[in-house]
Structure formats: C-alpha cells, structure tokens
Design a protein around this nucleic acid. Structure first.
Lengths: 197, 197, 197, 197
DNA sequence: CATGAATGAGGTTTCATTCAT
DNA sequence: TATGAATGAAACCTCATTCAT
C-alpha cells in the first residue's frame, strides 16, 4: 500500500516536471530528457511510470486540469455566488498559475491532429461548461443575474472571453498584469449582473 | 535560359502547401516531406526556396496573416462601418478560412519558447488592434457607438472574444457553425452599438 | 544499475576507430557510420559520447597527439641524449605509427578554414617545439652539439625536416621504408652533432 | 579556333576560382556553388566545362602545378646556377604564391583515399625531383657543390625541407615571413654549397 | 526499482548532378 | 552556350524506446 502511494507520488512529480518543461520550452520542443532534468531522474525512470511519451504528456495535462478544478472548487466553497472569484482561478493572474494555463493552451493545437486528444479536450470543456453553468444558475436563483440572461449562451461567451484574455496574457505577460485581465472580465460581468445599487 | 519560374509565386505555393499540411496534421507533426507532397515537389526544391524549415513555417504564417488582412481590407472597402463584416473575416466561418485560422492558432504555443516568434506575434496583434481601433473610431464618428464606450478597451475585449470564439469553433467545428459563432459576436456587439430603433 | 561502461574508455575506443577510418579513407570521406563500423557501434552510440562529428574528429586528433607524446616521453626516459630515438617516434617508420601520422597530417589542411583548429595546431607545434628544444639543450650541455649551433633555429629546421620526410613516407610508403627515412634524418643530424671520433 | 581559346580560357578561369575557394575555405568545405561565386558563374556553367567536381579540383591542382613550373622555369632561365632562387619559387613567400601552395598541400591528404590522386602526386614529385636534380647537377658541374655530395640524396632532403618549411609558413603565416623561411633554407644550403671565400 | 548505454527510425539539411528551357 | 530549378542520395543529428545490469 505505501508502495502505491510512492508510485502515484512519483508519477505526479514527473507530470509536474513535464508541466514546467512544456511551459518553458514549448510543447513540441520538450524531450523526455528535459522532463527528466526537471524531475531529477533519467528517461529510464520515466518510462517505468508511463507507457510512452504521450502518456507523460497527458498526465501533465490531467494534472493541470485537476489543479484547475481543485482551485475552482475551493472558490465555490468559499462563496457559491462569487462568479468573479470562480473565473479568476482559470486565468493566468499570477506566475504560479501561468505555467498551468500554458500547458492547457499547449494542447489546443495538438488536438488538430489527434482524435483522442480532441475528444478529451471536448470532455474537459463540457465539464468546465457545466461547472460554469451551475455558477450562473446559482446566481440566477439568488437574483444576481439581470433578467432575460440566457445562461447556456452566457456560459459560452464567458468561456470564450476567459480563453481570449488568458491567451493574450500568456503571450504578452508584461502587458497583461492581473488587474488588466480582471478589468476586462469585470466589464463584461457588469453587463450581465445585477448592479448593486 | 533556365526553366522560367516565378520565384515569388513558387515560394507562395510552398507556403500554401505548408498551411494545408499544418492545418491537417498539426504544426508539430508536419515534415518537409509532407509539405513537398502538398506542393508536388521534393524536399530539395523546398530548401531551394527557403533557408530552412523555420523559414517555411514563418512563410506559412505570413501568408495566412496576409490573406487575413486582405480580406479585412476588402471588408472595409465594401462598408467602412460594417464592424460585424470586418470581424467575421477573422473567424473560422467557412471551411476555407478555417485552415488559415488553424495555422494562426498553431503558432501561439510556439511563441512560448521562441523570442522571435513572440515578437512577431505581438507585432501582428498590434496591427490587428490598430485596424480594429480604426473601425471603432469610424463608427464612433458616425454615431454608431453607445456613448461612453472606451474604444481602446473595447478593442481588446473584442479581440479576446474573437479569439475565444474562434478557438472553440476550430476545436469543435461540428458544434460551431458560422451562425453560432456570429450569434455570440452579435450578442456582444449589441451591448456596445447604438440600437437601430 | 545500468550497464557498466567506462565512459572514458568508450570515448577513446571511438576516437581510435575514427583514427583508423581517417587513415584508411581520408579525413573528408569519413562518415559517422564508418567510424561506427570500426568501433562496432551505431551512429547513435557515437553521438551519445560526443556532441557532434567535429568533437569525434578532435578526439581522434587528441588521441594521436597523446600517443605521440607518450612515445616521445618513453624515448626520453630510455636515454635523454638519444635525439635520434626521440625524433624517430614522430616518423611513420612502422605501419602502426603510420596511421597516427596520417591523422595528424590530415588535420593540417583543415586548419585553413577553422580558426579553432588552427590555434590547436599551433599549440601542438609549440609543445613539440619545446620538447625538441629541451632535447637539444640536454645534448648541448652534454657537449654533444657542435659549437655555435643555434638551438631554437635548429629546432625549427629539424621539425620542418621531420614533417617533410614523414610526408613523403606517408604519400609513398613503398618507396620510403624506415631506413630511408632515418638515413635522411641521420645525414642532417651528422651536420650538427659532434662526431664520435 | 577562337571558340577553343574561349573554352580554355573559361576552364582556366574556373580552375583559378577553385584555387581561391580551396585556399580560403579548405578543400573539403568547397562546393561548386562557392567556386561559381568566385568565377562569377553558376554551377551549371561549371559542369559545362568539366565532367564533374573531381575534374574541377584536378584542374585547380594542375593550374597550380603549371604556374609553379612556369615560375621555376623562369628562375632557371634567369640564372641556371641560382639554386636558392629556383627553390624560393616553391615556397609561400608572398601572399600571391601562398594560395597556390595551399592548394598543392590540400591535395596531400586526399591522396590517402584516391589511388588516382596518389599516382598523380607521385608523378608530380618525380617531375619536381628531376628538375631539382638537374639544378644540382648543373651546380656540381660548375663546381659549386661541396665534394662528396650525393645529388639524388640531397634532392630528397631539400624537397623534404622545402615542404616542411612551407607547411609551417602556411599554417602560421604571421610568424613565418619570407625572411624566416629563407633563413632556414639558406642555413641548409650553406652546408652543401661551396662557400664563396 | 532504477539506470543510462545503445539502438535505429526518422527528420532536416547539404550538394553534386541533371535537364528543360 | 548557359541557366538555375529541381532532384535525390547521403550525411548528420535527435530522440523515443529498449534492455542488460
């Protein structure tokens, strides 16, 4: 049993190393050796824990997604009606979260060629979509949404906006500090939320 | 006299072939051989026109960007106040334009590791930003924007939204036909444009 | 535990294989595959131990030089005043030593284009020059040199002569057996050494 | 008939360009394109005048050798007993002659792998050997050689010395101006020539 | 469990050569 | 006669994967 824990820990450590490597060098320049360097182990060790390179990369993606959802869940627990706080967890506001977002984005273009990745991407989106829809429903029930707002439709628009802002922030980090990103998010939310009088 | 060949035309043909290959196989799976297949020539012929693979890829990006701007310019010529028509040219509404957008997106994650690509990406964005700003100014002067709209700020929001919608449409083409993409764009524009009474 | 391999030994084995290949096929016809054939390994194994082909070639040169100096040192240990024996170690007198000399010579023309190689070549010459100068000094102190001999000047002349004779012997091995080479060396030494009465 | 002259002129021009390229970049880094650049023509033009690359290289060598012999012949015509002047023509005393010597040397290592080149090299040497032998005979007949000098033997020693000095001068041009090269030659000649009392 | 040496397929790149014009 | 576009073989090099230890 302790073995299993070690095993999982090791896998996660390697996945985390892969994240760093992907964020730093770009997903298609990363080699198993690079990942090994970040994880302080050799390529042989990596192939002990993963079937092949693709499995490592997917584990990196899963790790990022998992962290993302954990943060989003915590935000919901803190305040189920804090839509802004919930969304902020998916934006590259701080250097620590930026790497994860980079990894997430890195897989986008990979889905062009891989049917499997494409399906997983869609699953992830659906999951995010549902989580966001639930936030909006909660807010609607609490009377915080402007009347006439189409929740499903808004979910998609917000998702697109978050991705679009996050992309800019990741491509041009210097010009896009947290405040600037949030300013654009807030400006949009203002348009659909009931204004506190 | 050697075989008469239009050097620029040949370069563009190869760049176009690279676009097709990138959109089809994904940017990191494309080989010079693949591009040669699409361009009906050998790898030797490609390196006759380009210094190396990177140069080919950049030419592909440039071609896509150039086509994008050409389409945007034509839209402006048709009707300088047609913001929607202008923006629609940068969205993957039809299969033909989808490939170009895919290529454009494909280079995003590449900028994580390449300083040169990152700079080019920013230049492109500035150019697009300026073009979009001008559209909004023209509309503002024509009294078509709601009062109090911050043009620079709106430019960024719209850019983010377009990228976000385009991304979804490209990742999940079946679910995102032109109408759905435009619906989200229209919904946002409605919020900043003067309503036709 | 990985397969236990003496890293330095492996490098030297590959360098030795490169020497053989260079001597046999000529420095500009040698491929990594050829070297691999001589070393009983694949090109991949070679690049596992060396950064690139240039590094392999330089290692080959270094190995040759090292062997040369080892032989010269041994000669000095045997008899510090045996100038002829010392010089003989740098001449292609036997088939075994011929390969090394060939490799050494092969790098001469490479220095025309490579600044780094040129510098290394000069360093090697200086080292040889100093060793030879020391031999002559020892002999002078032992009263074996004719009076009035300029040691530095003679060092250069002898070096030139050795190179010239060695070159002929390597280009036309059949016509230049050891005796013939040594005859020319002896004839010159006779002119500067005190004759045994 | 004028065509033929043009043809030969063109061939020689290309051979001369090859010489420059070889001296500058090293014999194994030279491409037909480089030679074309120096000759102001394309690779196509070169293959019009030569069967293949080897033929071009050999033409370059022939040109160098031919120039060498022309210079040596002129020296003999000026003064048949001026051994020093005769030998000086084969040394890299001036920048102009250095390129030719470099080309000559460059072919040395090529002979390791090519039987044809090796034979040509030997032919060249024999020719030079004979010319030098004749010089020494003339001097001997004129009573300018010390008694007991073995002409054939001295010819070889002198040839080796010339090559050895020339090599050093070519590898380390800055340290080996004409005077230094000639000083070593003179020192040797002094040992075999009758001293002017 | 873990290592890292070795493999070998596959990619990019170079370049002598050919050939249509 | 001359061009230079195009070929294609061959080289170097990278790297995911395997495997003896």
């Amino acid at each position: 049993m302790p073995r299993v824990v070690d095993h999982d820990q090791r896998r996660e450590a390697i996945a985390a190393a892969a994240c760093k490597a992907i964020a730093r060098q770009g997903i298609d320049a990363v080699t198993l050796g690079d990942i090994g360097d970040h994880a302080d182990c050799t390529t042989g060790a990596i192939t002990h824990y993963f079937a092949d390179k693709d499995a490592v990369m997917l584990a990196a993606l899963d790790l990022v997604i998992q962290r993302l959802y954990r943060r989003m869940s915590r935000a919901v627990e803190r305040d189920p009606t804090d839509l802004r706080g919930f969304l902020a967890e998916t934006m590259p506001l701080r250097p620590q979260s930026r790497d994860g977002i980079k990894v997430w984005f890195s897989f986008w273009t990979r889905t062009f060629s891989s049917r499997a990745l494409n399906r997983r991407q869609r699953e992830m989106h659906v999951r995010w979509f549902n989580a966001l829809t639930e936030r909006l429903s909660v807010m609607d029930n609490a009377g915080l949404l402007r009347p006439g707002v189409d929740i499903a439709f808004e979910t998609e628009t917000i998702a697109a906006l978050i991705n679009g802002i996050g992309l800019r922030a990741v491509l041009d980090a210097r010009e896009w500090p947290a405040e600037r990103q949030l300013a654009h998010l807030d400006a949009y939310l203002e348009k659909i939320l009931v204004q506190p009088s």
